[in-house]
Design a binder for these strands. Structure first.
Length: 506
RNA sequence: CGGGGUAUAGCGCAGUCCGGUUAGCGCACCUGGUUUGGGACCAGGGGGUCGUAGGUUCGAAUCCUACUACCCCGACCA
């Protein structure tokens, strides 16, 4: 019972109200259409800032809930630090300020007044701040300034804090979820007594992110370390997870930084060790943002709309009743409610779409567009035969299920869908990962195939920069445990001992 | 910030070149009826300072000027 593509096309072309640009025709437009028409987010009246709509926010809340639980399981506590950061804090860590200076929003005044010409309101020049405030692009500085007062002794360590917050980076060009001027994220900031402990923390959180993407978002990731060019401003080492989108571009999905003692020194955060000696503390920070929403959308969705992995879908199963007469509705309704109750005993989130203002076909199309993993349709024929029609979003297949043990069958189906999405994404990545040895091959692959390209690099920032200028491809990551392989840099021909991962990226 | 484009009902558009009734159309919305196993149909109805501010003109959605916002492409970045 499979709906073939011609049938789908027929339905779409004849009735379609929500037009989705074809993914193959214009990937960016497809993405934008999807975000807006699936009601995940909208552009707002504020340049570069988005409105996250209830359906999109529900997905973000699921992401938050799962990660928050993992953070707490790994010993972290949530706290909240100010949105505003005194400008002077920023200049304390040289590379940090250099990295963020160009994209900071600055608060200079604290009052408005009626304009002298009587038209509207103007900034009151008399209300100029003594010290200007930066709207946080990230919170290292305010947090480390605070940690100074929290940390005295090795007994205060490790300090394991996370905050869920919004940050602002004044980007020139923005895209819904992928790059917005304001975005939501979590930022972990930890302080440790030893370098090894801090390194272990950075590695642990990278692992938490990788596990989350793979098992919940169904997106396979590469783990690695950033080249100096791509390193976080102020970090000693930046670890990252990179995912491959369906257009062959890479997306950095999360980062975890080993900050060494850079911020401890800049903000004079010392502790007394067991030998009663003063030492600077060792630090990490790590974060993921609403950008994950972009990854989720781009990794799985198709020309019929959004495709959501069951573990993050706000609605996992939608039940659509089909009926003509009131008597039919009564019996269908009874069965539908029974099924809903059964599914809920397994913790499945079910929407019973019993709106009488929309026809079944409309509901099918709508829930399909919004990526609901499983749809159950139940009509008079089903009631008679004790069956339902089950359609899965990932493959668009339909099947008839006996209602007996429906909750077990659907639970199993959801697991299958989750797995299938991961496997599809994994296959895609494998089919779009290329190994090249010459410059011509490299350019050709980046230009015509996209994807991840494994190549030798001489290890210098200059070479990476030149490659970026010539091909727009950057080193997405250096594998954590690179396989030893002697070769020559694709650009300079200098010796190299292992391959790194190149790609064009978001 | 550079290049290009757009702005007319909630959404998508026509009308603008070549100024001239009451600014149209599709979808959506409201009412009534018939319908309901893949985006229903019929009838009736509501909704517009034509992005903003000036200007030209007897008359401006239409011509001119400035401004603003958004989208796409680049440089920058998660």
């Amino acid at each position: 019972m499979q709906l073939n593509s011609e049938q789908i096309l027929y339905h779409k072309s004849k009735f379609m109200a929500k037009i989705l640009t074809n993914r193959e025709d214009n990937y960016s437009q497809w993405y934008n259409d999807l975000v807006i028409k699936a009601e995940l987010a909208d552009n707002s009246a504020v340049r570069g800032c988005m409105v996250i709509k209830p359906y999109g926010y529900a997905i973000w809340e699921k992401i938050q809930a799962i990660l928050d639980k993992r953070f707490k399981e790994t010993g972290h506590q949530n706290a909240y630090f100010p949105l505003f950061i005194p400008k002077s804090f920023f200049s304390k860590e040289a590379s940090h300020v250099a990295g963020f200076a160009k994209e900071c929003a600055v608060v200079t005044h604290y009052r408005l007044k009626n304009s002298p010409d009587g038209k509207g309101i103007v900034v009151d020049e008399d209300a100029k701040l003594e010290e200007e405030l930066i709207v946080r692009p990230t919170s290292e500085t305010i947090i480390w300034d605070t940690y100074r007062t929290w940390i005295q002794s090795y007994r205060d360590l490790p300090l394991l804090i996370n905050q869920w917050a919004n940050v602002v980076r004044w980007e020139m060009r923005t895209r819904l979820f992928l790059r917005t001027a304001e975005f939501l994220w979590q930022e972990g900031h930890t302080a440790h007594a030893t370098e090894a402990e801090a390194q272990a923390e950075a590695a642990l959180m990278l692992e938490v992110y990788a596990e989350f993407l793979e098992t919940h978002m169904a997106i396979p990731v590469w783990k690695g370390v950033k080249s100096p060019n791509e390193r976080f401003a102020g970090a000693v080492e930046t670890y990252c997870i990179e995912a491959l989108m369906q257009d062959g571009k890479a997306l950095q999905a999360g980062t975890s930084h080993f900050l060494g003692q850079n911020f401890a020194k800049a903000f004079d955060v010392k502790f007394v060790n067991k030998e009663n000696k003063q030492e600077y503390v060792w630090a990490t920070s790590w974060g993921v943002s609403t950008r994950l929403m972009g990854a989720l959308i781009m990794a799985h969705s198709d020309n019929n709309g959004l495709v959501l992995p069951p573990k993050l879908a706000p609605i996992q199963v939608v039940i659509v009743p089909i009926f003509k007469s009131d008597e039919q509705f009564a019996s269908v309704n009874e069965k539908a409610l029974y099924i809903k109750k059964q599914l809920e005993t397994k913790g499945i989130s079910v929407k019973y779409d019993n709106r009488d203002t929309q026809k079944p076909g409309f509901k099918f199309a709508e829930h399909e567009f919004k990526g609901v993993p499983v749809r159950i349709a139940i009509g008079p024929r089903d009631v008679e035969e004790n069956t339902v029609e089950v359609a899965r979003r990932d493959t668009l297949e339909k099947a008839i299920y006996q209602i007996t043990d429906i909750e077990i069958k659907i639970e199993h189906l959801l697991e299958q869908i989750q797995l299938n999405l991961f496997n599809k994404a994994m296959n895609f990545r494998e089919n779009n990962t290329f190994t090249v040895d010459t410059w011509d091959e490299f350019v050709d692959t980046i230009e015509h195939k996209g994807g991840f390209v494994l190549a030798h690099w001489d290890g210098t920032p200059e070479t990476e920069q030149r490659i970026k200028e010539m091909t727009k491809a950057t080193i997405r990551l250096i594998p954590l445990d690179p396989k030893k392989e002697e070769g020559r840099c694709i650009l300079t021909g200098n010796p190299s001992h292992f391959r790194v991962v190149f790609a064009r990226s978001y």
